[in-house]
Design a binder for these strands. Structure first.
Lengths: 202, 202
DNA sequence: TTACATAAGTTAGCGACACTTACTTTGCAA
DNA sequence: TTGCAAAGTAAGTGTCGCTAACTTATGTAA
């Protein structure tokens, strides 16, 4: 466990904000969302325990920044995954779902943070905007399949149905509630089948 | 905000364990999972801050007890809901889902606790058993619809698909990510449609 | 180049909390 | 009645969140 990633030569750190976010993301992953402390993150970045408060108002704001960064990575992963398939194909939709699940599996702590943070942080417009952007990726993919506008209610409700499915599967997966019900290749088949079933439904 | 529910007459409390669990459940609901403190719970129960440690090893064990009690209530609600409909009907399955969502909406904090606790509390056999019992309710209902054994792989996978759907919808609902996509009566129709679609699928 | 406002660090300290230890009160069983 | 274990208390330790007051570096304007 590295006490400090890059030893500091000067009085000023230069990259503290980003390093704090990274440290917290790591801590959340290993010690759980409540098992992290601002002090410990500061220690890892090699600064005093008061330094973080020059960059973040308080502990929740730091957590929110981690969640925000996580959402950026999630949206990026979804977009990349979708782009690997023909627009309008079931595969493109399933791939988005696969990226979602993979993201959750790769960082359960951050994933939980991203989707469990609305608790005390109600209605942060910044975070809500990023959430909407993520949903937008799904909307566009579904719209392409159905050959309709992303604003069409039918598109929205089917996209939502897909989202709930994938979201639930992700959560149950990282909570280990699945207990060997699915193997890796089965998961892709599962996602494809669900996508087709929801998008092809009458 | 009541400082103490039932004033204590004797030195011994008599019902501290249960009152602590109730106090924590309330605190989790209002202040979030990390916004509660053992000290505050003790204060509400009218005892010293050291008293809880006569009943619970540490903070996580107290949280686990709250989650465990929550799971009991959830399973009970699911069973009650299922019993209100004919065994083998789609309604019985949808009703289980509705009970699940209602439970989440009624107590988002506890719900999140129940399904987010596997984080640091990996593999508590007690909790896992209760989780399996909840899934058992779904399994039996699905088995009745499909007229197969609850151990049949087909039953298990369809029950799992339903679970992911309802679970995802619950989470997105309490996270307010739905933003007026569904009204109350629409939700029942949604659950019925999904149940029929998954259980009636080829 | 130099002056200086400001950004970004520091130490010191307060109150709260998790948890321990040692002590006290009480109910119950022999 | 006595004695013991269960269940409470008070006091203390180390950590944490956060603030206040201070110091150091940096970029800009004269």
């Amino acid at each position: 466990m590295p006490e400090r990633t890059t030893p500091r030569s000067s009085y000023h750190h230069g990259d503290l904000r980003a390093q704090l976010i990274a440290a917290v993301a790591e801590l959340v992953e290993t010690h759980g969302p409540d098992g992290f402390s601002v002090a410990e993150a500061a220690r890892r970045a090699g600064v005093s325990s008061a330094a973080p408060y020059k960059h973040f108002k308080d502990r929740p704001e730091l957590l929110r920044a981690v969640a925000s960064a996580g959402m950026d990575r999630l949206r990026d992963a979804m977009e990349t995954a979708a782009a690997r398939h023909r627009a309008g194909s079931y595969e493109s939709v399933a791939a988005i779902g696969q990226a979602y699940v993979d993201f959750a599996r790769a960082g359960p702590g951050v994933f939980r943070l991203v989707f469990g943070l609305t608790e005390g942080h109600d209605g942060d417009p910044h975070l809500e905007g990023k959430g909407a952007a993520c949903f937008g990726v799904v909307l566009r993919a579904v719209a392409a399949v159905l050959e309709r506008s992303p604003d069409d209610p039918i598109v929205r409700i089917r996209a939502y149905a897909l989202w709930t499915f994938v979201h639930g599967h992700s959560f149950l997966t990282i909570d280990r509630k699945t207990k060997g019900k699915f193997e890796l290749q089965d998961e892709w088949a599962f996602l494809m089948q669900v996508s087709a079933s929801i998008l092809g439904g009458h």
